[in-house]
Amino acid sequence: MDMIVPLNALKPGEKGIVVNILGGAGARQRLVAMGLTPGATIQVIKSYPFGPIILSVSGTRFAIGRGLASKVMVRKL
């Protein structure tokens, strides 16, 4: 079984494939529309210990809050 972890557990430089998004429909559908959908490959560019995580999703950069990131489940690559 591959390792499935919340997005906020990835370290800078690590990649993962989104498998599921938990949490309310509002936040979920916003994430999905921005390209963070199950199947999408994401890479963590920078992760600030008490701040946001900077991500790359198919060429676009996003800043995402830790709380929201913990709801995005990824399979570590």
């Binding site: 509002g26 936040a27 916003r30 994430l31 921005m34 963070l36 946001p52 900077i54 676009t60 950069r61 996003f62 800043a63 995402i64 809050g65 709380g67 929201l68």
Partner: peptide
Amino acid sequence: GESSPFIIELPE
């Protein structure tokens, strides 16, 4: 109303 989830696109 809903407050916005914290995800912000960082355009180049």
